[in-house]
Design a protein around this nucleic acid. Structure first.
Lengths: 202, 202
DNA sequence: GTGCGGATGTATCGTCCCGATACATCGAGC
DNA sequence: GCTCGATGTATCGGGACGATACATCCGCAC
């Protein structure tokens, strides 16, 4: 997931770790952020796989003679996506199976890069996510139905809030899906000569 | 966090792993569940620390003579909380610092066992959680304000939904806090002789 | 009556992720 | 002149997760 997000961000422009972390936090929706303990190993893995290149500039070049021996003096490391990295990103961006929507974080990353995703894949991911969240809601409802009586106020309140948030997510996804379908219809109408019958909405 | 939840559940009654996992999922709000890859190591840690005892019954006792050699035949393992475990749980339940509310999961567990928590600690945890979530909201708003222009529809939509969910959580917490304060007032009124002046609401 | 799927049940392994921590620089404000 | 917070790179230990393996029992369909 992290790898995916990193490739997506580096696709836009080269960055170093610090920027990457901030952009990542924005992409992830702001609620949960990524730690350096995840970021740097991920960058290493990506570099090892040849998907990104680390550009380590000014390793203390053109120094005055009184340079402090060899203190750490780490230079900024700029990461750039490679051609293989772009290929890999294209692959990841067009995956439409459960791995694209079952995990919340992963789904968020897909959504963040939807502008690089084909329209039909977008729709499948959104609908898949909706199914996943609906199943969560059903499980929650079921569990609430069975245990409601012997729950105290706080647990009940927690479940209620969870249920509410799931409901809202389903509604949100439905709006997105509807708007996607509208776009698709408009697109089809644009490509079709006027007066022709529109295809049925399956 | 897991340890905390396990102790809380075993406080109510002894269980084996499978039950524990299901109850855990309910406690966690139903959205994210715990895997065995987390559960069993946690149980081992707790047993190692003497906070729970594993009761491994019927290790193939009273078998007919034609018992199948020594096939695996694992017996059910029932876990029981020990006296030290109860002490530890009491400690955990009364912690009111950031560790109680900064992490969502941890906060959820605290809430789930609020009936074992003193009223003043409850209030401090709820208010701490609200501050944490409000800070998340502020960061999100700030980031939205700065980047709004150059964001595409999907990213924007994701942020909007995130913001909405944060807002809802703040409102929910406020309701809980108000209701806690009402309870506290009622309690104080009950303990106070009629006609005495109520304490000021700080 | 038999077989098959799904719930119950215990457990491990590799991989990834996180929090804490260390180190280093630089601009702003006190 | 000094401290505080942002910028910046990096590691380490511990913990969580997904995948996987294995075993039992029950009900339902064929």
């Amino acid at each position: 997931m992290l790898e995916f997000a990193i490739l997506g961000l580096l696709q836009q422009s080269p960055m170093h770790g610090y920027e990457l972390r901030k952009e990542l936090a924005a992409v992830l929706g702001g609620r949960r952020s990524i730690s350096y303990g995840s970021l740097y190993p991920a960058l290493k893995r990506l570099a090892g796989a040849g998907l990104i290149a680390s550009d380590e500039p000014t390793p203390r070049a053109l120094l005055p003679a009184d340079a402090p021996a060899l203190t750490g003096r780490r230079g900024k490391v700029v990461y750039t996506i490679t051609a293989e990295g772009k290929e890999r990103f294209a692959e990841l961006v067009s995956e439409a199976g459960p791995e694209a929507y079952d995990d919340e974080g992963r789904f968020g990353v897909h959504l963040a890069f939807f502008r690089h995703t084909a329209a039909d894949v977008r729709l499948r991911i959104l609908e898949g996510r909706r199914r996943t969240v609906e199943r969560q809601r059903d499980r929650l409802l079921e569990s609430l139905r069975r245990t409601q009586a012997r729950l105290d106020r706080y647990t009940l309140e927690l479940q209620r809030h969870g249920l509410d948030s799931v409901d809202r997510e389903v509604r949100w996804l439905t709006e997105l899906i509807d708007s996607e379908k509208d776009d698709a219809r408009a697109e089809a109408a644009r490509a079709r000569p006027p007066g022709t019958a529109p295809p049925s909405t399956t």
